[in-house]
Design a protein around this nucleic acid. Structure first.
Length: 218
DNA sequence: AATGAGGGCAACCGCAAATGT
DNA sequence: CACATTTGCGGTTGCCCTCAT
């Protein structure tokens, strides 16, 4: 195992960005741990991945959040809780880190929400009721019984291995497809015409949920 | 002008799941 | 199947900037 301290930490320089971009241009993304070996970049693979996903990727939208984006995040957070990756997947051009930061620094303040520790959140009546309802809906899915304390229903919905397909708005197989079809059956689909959400798959899933998202009021 | 507080955001950390060997 | 490695997630930290004093 190589010593951790061989890697640099802190903010990235333009030169480091250039090296990383060049590597990705030639080799594509993935195999992040190869990057320091191949390029000589003094950054661990994990750091390279993060830099690409949160900053260098051309799909990342810079600048402030629009009101529509904020509204969407608030509604998705109301439904999904702190599933930042899942929320970000439905806000085009925004990363989970951006969404998380924006929530913590702006939206929470805007909504007058105080920081709540996880024990309190877990104990809240509202949260318990939501989780109970979600668990009930998911209980007949074989994968669901395998979930650990960390791999809750939201993460299952995400279908980790199909994540990129989902965020690209494509149909995916496995768990998330099962969830989509299941909820589509259990609840009539509502046609949604939203300026930001342009892929219907997950909206249908959301509409299948027994939660009031209030899309119509948008 | 100096400096301390607070906000915003990029990046790190620890953990767990997925994948590879 | 067991173990190692890689990938991905959410929480947290710490740096930098702005603004008030």
């Amino acid at each position: 195992m190589e010593a951790e301290n061989q890697y640099k930490k802190g903010l990235w320089t333009e030169e480091e960005d250039r090296i990383l971009l060049e590597y990705i241009r030639v080799h594509g993304r993935g195999k992040w741990n190869r990057i320091p070996k191949v390029t000589g970049l003094k950054r661990c693979g994990k750091s390279c991945r993060l830099r690409w996903l949160n900053y260098l990727s051309p799909t990342v939208k810079r600048g402030g959040f629009s009101e529509e984006e904020e509204d969407l995040i608030i509604r998705l957070h109301n439904l999904l809780g702190n599933r930042w990756s899942l929320i970000a997947g439905r806000v085009p051009g925004r990363t989970d880190n951006q969404v998380k930061n924006h929530w913590n620094t702006h939206l929470r303040k805007k909504l007058g929400i105080k920081k709540q520790n996880r024990k309190l959140l877990g104990a809240s009546k509202e949260h318990s009721a939501q989780m109970e309802e979600r668990n009930k809906l998911c209980s007949d899915h074989s994968q669901y019984s395998k979930l650990s304390h960390r791999t809750d229903s939201a993460k299952l919905m995400q279908g980790r291995t199909n994540e990129s397909a989902l965020s690209a708005g494509e149909a995916s197989n496995g768990e998330s497809q099962w969830m989509s079809s299941h909820f589509a059956e259990s609840s009539p689909l509502i046609s949604v015409d939203h300026p930001i959400l342009d892929s219907p798959g997950f909206i249908e899933l959301i509409d299948g949920y027994p939660f009031d998202l209030g899309w119509q009021s948008l």
